[in-house]
């Protein structure tokens, strides 16, 4: 891999780790970046999986939105880079 090749994936890649913790899919949820206010599907965030844990950054301003770190007995979630996360709930 060359230095100018992007190393990130996208929020889709966090689906399994998130569903281990949450009862609903988070990747289709809409989040707002606390840094620049950009709104978009969590799936469209840039996801770095080569850090310890996973880091999701804003596709527009590159600020850290979410960090997920799993240990053998716990999962640490840091959502402070999001103003909110809108999860659609079934109406029935």
């Amino acid at each position: 891999m060359t230095a100018d090749e992007p190393t990130y994936l996208d929020g889709n890649a966090a689906a399994g780790a998130m569903r281990e913790v949450f009862a609903v899919d988070i990747t289709a949820a809409t989040g707002q970046c606390a840094g620049c206010g950009d709104r978009g599907a969590f799936a469209e965030a840039r996801l770095y999986v080569d850090a310890p844990g996973m880091v999701a950054r804003c596709r527009r301003c590159d600020d850290v939105m979410v960090r997920v770190v799993s240990t053998p007995d716990s999962t640490y979630l840091d959502f402070r880079g999001l103003t909110y996360l809108r999860i659609r709930t079934p109406t029935t």
Binding site: G11, N12, A15, G16, M18, R19, E20, D25, T27, A28, A41, F42, A43, E44
Partner: peptide, 9 residues
């Protein structure tokens, strides 16, 4: 395995 996952794509 663990799945299915992902609701966007």
């Amino acid at each position: 395995i663990r799945g299915p996952v992902g609701g966007w794509f």
